[in-house]
Structures are given as C-alpha cells and as structure tokens.
Simulated assay, not measured.
Amino acid sequence: MSAQLIYDLVPLGAIVRFSDGTPRPPERHRKKLAAWEYRNSGGRLIRKQPERRVGNTVISASITLHTGDYGGDGVVVLRVHRSFSVDSDLKFAVTERPKAGAVRVVDRPGEDAELVYLAGSRADAETWLQSHGYPNAVLDEVMADAVAADVAEGRTAA
C-alpha cells in the first residue's frame, strides 16, 4: 500500500513496515546492509501531518513512524522518528493495528497531534500521564466499532 493510503486509512498506533522491494544483501556487506535497512524497516505510526503552505511553498502531507529508542538503564537518550511524504516511492504494510480498548495518549488536541504513548487501558494511560509532562495531552480510546469498521470496509492489515 502507498504512504497516501497509510495517511488516509490507518489509525495512529498501528505498526507499519516499509520497503523498497529490493532483496536483503548478505550480512558480510555491512555498508550495503545498512543502506538496505534504512529503506526497509518499520515502526509505530505516531503522526499524520496534513499538507501545509509556507509562503509560496506547498509541503505535502506526511506520516511519521517511531522506529526506535536508544539508551540504557531505563533512560531513553535518543528517540528515532522517520517521516515520509505521502508521495514516497516506498511500499508500506500494516502489520498490527491498535486493539479495541487500548488508549492513545496524544500530545495535544487537533489533527496535528502526535502519539506519545499507547496504553492497554484507560487506567494505564492515566498512570503514565501522571509521571510524564504533557499538560495538553488528550486520551483517545480505540473503540471496537472502529476496529470492526476497518474490517468491514476492507481496511484490515495488508
């Protein structure tokens, strides 16, 4: 599926894989393997940013994936996000959708919000929110009817 379809159909919190369709090089070719892994990986969908204008320039809509965290002893030092334009030439696939009853914690209201945590329940989300500094955060529960609508409309993981 294309990045545009991910933007249009896939909910925040879904696990998305992306690929350029090339075969994985052997482990012994470290530089080629690193370049391949850059274009063939995945992450959690955390943001959908609509098209916007900056002066006379139009910046196309984009999606952002959280691809990993680096650190140690329970401390995250570096959080890695990858953004893709909806015009990207990569192919995308949804491998997992948020389960019904899960609660998305987004950093602010509105369509430009970013997912900061996906909780298993409302109590878990509220506990997490108390120990993290997001004063404008919004809790958004994944409803069973939204998951069922995706299945009925053929928008299940492809």
Rank of each mutant, 00 (worst) to 15 (best):
V75N: 11
S19M: 13
L33M: 02
E153V: 11
G42H: 04
V151K: 15
E51N: 04
H132N: 09
P26S: 09
G120N: 05
S121F: 07
W128S: 10
D69L: 05
R47N: 04
H81R: 14
D69C: 05
V138A: 05
Q49V: 14
L45H: 03
G72I: 01
V77F: 11
R97L: 13
S41D: 15
D145Q: 14
T57D: 11
R104S: 01
P25V: 03
V105C: 05
R82Q: 12
L45E: 08
L129R: 06
H132I: 04
A14H: 12
K48Q: 07
A102V: 02
M143G: 09
L78T: 14
N136V: 07
E27W: 10
T67Q: 11
A158R: 14
G110V: 10
R122G: 00
A149R: 13
K48I: 07
D145I: 12
S62W: 01
M143D: 13
A125Y: 06
L115N: 04
K91Q: 14
V94K: 06
V58M: 08
G13T: 10
Y134A: 01
G133P: 09
R17C: 15
R155D: 11
F18R: 05
D107L: 07
K99P: 02
A157T: 13
L78V: 15
M143N: 13
V147D: 07
E51I: 08
I46L: 06
P23R: 08
R24A: 14
L12R: 03
G154Q: 01
L90D: 09
K91T: 15
D112Y: 06
Y7R: 00
I59D: 07
T57K: 13
Y38P: 00
L118G: 06
H29P: 04
S2V: 03
A123T: 10
A158E: 11
A125L: 05
V86I: 15
G43H: 04
A137E: 01
N56P: 10
H29I: 11
A93G: 08
G71P: 01
V80H: 13
H29K: 14
T57L: 12
T127F: 06
E141M: 13
P98A: 12
R17V: 15
A146Y: 03
Y117I: 03
A144F: 03
P23L: 02
D87Y: 10
I46S: 06
T67K: 02
V106Q: 00
S41E: 09
R39N: 15
Y7D: 01
H66Q: 01
L9W: 12
E27D: 13
E37P: 00
D107K: 02
G72L: 02
L90G: 10
E96F: 08
V103G: 03
V138P: 05
V77E: 14
I6V: 09
L45P: 07
P98S: 10
Q49R: 15
K32H: 05
V54M: 13
V16H: 10
H66G: 00
A119V: 03
A125V: 01
A34P: 00
Q130L: 08
D150T: 09
A102L: 00
Q49N: 14
D73Q: 11
E51Y: 08
V86M: 05
L118I: 05
S121H: 11
G154T: 03
A158H: 10
A157D: 12
E141Y: 06
L45W: 07
D124I: 01
S2D: 09
V16G: 11
